[in-house]
Computed example of a mutant assay.
Amino acid sequence: MLSSEVPRRGALYRVHHEGKISYLFGTIHVGKQDFFPLEPEVTEALAKSSALVLELDVRASDDYFQALARHGQYPAGQTIRDHLSPEALRKLQAALAKVKLPLKSVEHYRPWVVANILVGQEIEKSGFNRGMGVEGFLLSNARKKPLLELENADYQLGLFGALDDAQQEAYLLENIDDIDSGGALRKSAGLVEAWGAADAARIAALTHELTTGDSVSARFMDRTLLGKRNPEMAASIEAIMRKGDAFIGIGLLHLVGDNGVPALLRQHGYQVDKVY
């Protein structure tokens, strides 16, 4: 394939400050083989940057599993059966049966983990692979560059782990209902498709849908996964740019709207231009 034929994917920003130029790219955490290579403006921006910055190093599986055990698993002697209402347990068992997962295989996980497993199964049914996220491509194309992390697995999973039992049960039931209605696949696949076409309007519309409403899931996405983390990411990016330039790959939703990372950097005096 000629480079000119590689489609634009995601969203790419050029960030100027005090003579330094960095790039900000929106990633997704699932993928397909035909998503790669990324288009030339992205690969060229990565090639000329001094460092690669990601939310976290997705290769650090030991750190992830330690964090999962700390924030996503029950202490020995407890299972999800002890923490769900009878009706929620019944709905969970029905949802697990549909994907042929025995309750025994996930009962040591907290409800937020099980909800994310079920949504992940739904996404993979549509052909997207969690092992082919954009971060892996960026890492493989920046082997000789320093890697800097904005967060770590303990921090990220701790955000979910901070939900109390009632919130976790609601999060689980909301996601099961979303799977049953087809909403989970529509939103997840829609976001990946919008990323694959660099469709800014659709990305913004889906972000609005995911963060609007009175559900635990929407409030958690709006206030915590985005509202809390975006300012922290922006502050970390500013600290990195004070020392040098970088190619920064973060989840696509962090780039959207008046409270997105590009907007926050602009508020702090950075010149942020959207490449596409």
Rank of each mutant, 00 (worst) to 15 (best):
L2R: 12
G10H: 00
A11D: 09
A11N: 11
A11S: 13
L12V: 03
Y13D: 01
R14T: 11
H16N: 11
G26A: 01
D34G: 09
F35T: 07
T43I: 08
T43L: 09
E44M: 08
L46N: 06
S49I: 01
E55Y: 08
A60M: 01
D63Q: 00
Y64H: 05
Y64P: 02
Q66Y: 05
A67E: 00
L68P: 01
R70K: 09
Q73D: 15
Q73T: 14
Y74A: 07
P75I: 11
Q78T: 12
P86F: 09
R90H: 15
R90T: 15
K91Y: 14
L92N: 07
L92V: 10
L96S: 13
V99L: 10
P102W: 14
L103C: 12
L103A: 13
K104D: 15
P111T: 14
V113F: 03
V113Q: 04
N116C: 05
L118S: 09
S126W: 07
G131L: 11
M132W: 10
M132D: 13
E135N: 03
G136W: 03
F137K: 03
S140Y: 05
K144G: 14
L147T: 03
L148R: 06
E149G: 01
N152H: 04
Y155I: 09
L159F: 09
A162F: 05
D165I: 02
Y171H: 08
E174L: 07
I176S: 13
I176P: 08
D177Q: 14
D178W: 09
S181W: 10
K187Q: 15
S188W: 04
S188P: 11
A189R: 04
G190S: 09
L191V: 02
E193A: 05
A194F: 00
A200P: 03
A200G: 08
I203Q: 00
T207Q: 06
E209Y: 01
T212H: 14
G213R: 07
F220R: 04
M221L: 10
M221Q: 11
D222A: 11
A239K: 12
M241Y: 09
R242T: 15
R242D: 15
D245W: 05
I248D: 12
A263E: 13
L264S: 01
L264Q: 02
Y270P: 02
Q271Y: 07
Q271C: 06
V272D: 12
D273P: 06
